[in-house]
């Protein structure tokens, strides 16, 4: 199945804390477009709203304001309309402990009502592709962390979904396993033609998997939208440094702004100027308050 376009339009997400009723803004305002078949990594510091965006994209949470469109529909409002179109790989494998590897991979196919024989054929095929042919009958507790995550990846790909979402899916694995799985994930996503969004806090991961890297401020707004191909291999160190500075200062590094993808540099600088003014006015209010 070919990928679908993902578009965030003035997307905002707020939560009210159940303990004290305080309103928390997880997503300030998000505007971005991810084209069909693109692989985009989202980076940001802890608590910057990456996972809230993930929940909105899956359709588990409704936006407070604005819209998130997949194709031309909203996954929250048209929840069942996306059955079989979206698949996810979570931070933890989230395998059902009572199901064997094969049955875990069959789950999404059972939910779309595929015939059992066809379910097993497809699930076996994906487990084989992910090097787990000998472990189809193994229960999750009999597998290593890396193998369990492979099963989770097979469970996502077995649908050959239009949209693939991965939320820090490789961060808890050792470096070698994580690199290997990342590579497999990207290769399979390209092969399926799915639009893939990988949420991560690891810059190396973001730069190595994505066609683009979206850098989020806290709360989430797009600080930088980087096309990785614009940064040749010898400048990757510089890119890494620029993203780090962007994250630390909560403003787009000039080196990135010059090569911004969707927003011309002038617009970015203008935006930064507006932010500066906004911050100055906040400081003035605080100072007056004191």
């Amino acid at each position: 199945m070919s990928g679908l376009r993902i578009q965030a339009q003035h997307l905002r997400k707020q939560f009210r804390q159940s303990a004290n009723g305080v309103l928390i803004t997880a997503i300030e305002q998000l505007d971005f477009v991810i084209e069909p078949g693109e692989i985009v990594a989202v980076v940001g510091s802890t608590g910057c709203g990456k996972s809230s965006l993930f929940d909105v994209m899956i359709g588990l949470q409704a936006p407070t304001a604005g819209r998130l469109l997949i194709g031309d529909r909203e996954p929250y409002r048209d929840f069942n309309g996306f059955r079989g179109l979206i698949a996810t790989v979570f931070q933890q494998d989230r395998l059902m402990p009572w199901r064997s590897s094969l049955d875990n991979v069959c789950l999404p196919l059972e939910l779309i009502g595929l015939a059992p024989d066809e379910q097993h054929r497809r699930a076996r095929g994906w487990l084989e592709r992910l090097g787990l042919a000998a472990f189809t009958d193994a229960y999750p507790h009999e597998l290593s962390g890396g193998m369990r995550q492979r099963v989770a990846i097979a469970r996502a790909f077995v649908l050959q979904p239009a949209i693939l979402l991965a939320d820090e899916s490789f961060g808890h694995l050792d470096e070698v396993t994580a690199a290997e799985l990342r590579e497999t994930f990207v290769a399979l996503a390209r092969e399926c033609g799915s639009t893939a969004v990988l949420i991560t806090h690891q810059l190396e991961e973001a730069m190595s998997v994505g066609d683009r890297v979206l850098v989020f401020a806290k709360p989430a707004t797009v600080l930088a939208d980087i096309r990785v191909a614009d940064w040749p291999a010898e400048r990757r160190g510089e890119l890494r440094e620029a993203i780090q500075l962007t994250l630390q200062s909560n403003r787009c590094d000039e080196r990135i702004a010059r090569l911004a993808v969707q927003q011309p540099a002038d617009a970015v600088i203008e935006q930064l100027g507006a932010r500066d003014k906004h911050e100055q006015s906040d400081q003035a209010i605080k100072a007056n308050g004191r």
């Binding site: 929940d55 899956i58 359709g59 588990l60 929840f79 069942n80 996306f82 059955r83 079989g84 979206i86 698949a87 996810t88 979570f90 933890q92 989230r94 059902m96 789950l107 999404p108 059972e110 939910l111 649908l159």
Partner: peptide, 19 residues
């Protein structure tokens, strides 16, 4: 975690309880 996982695949209410 498991509820969110299965919800992401959009089960019917009956499937949610059975699966």
């Amino acid at each position: 975690e498991l509820r969110d996982m299965i919800h992401s695949f959009r089960p019917s209410t009956s499937q949610l309880f059975r699966k």
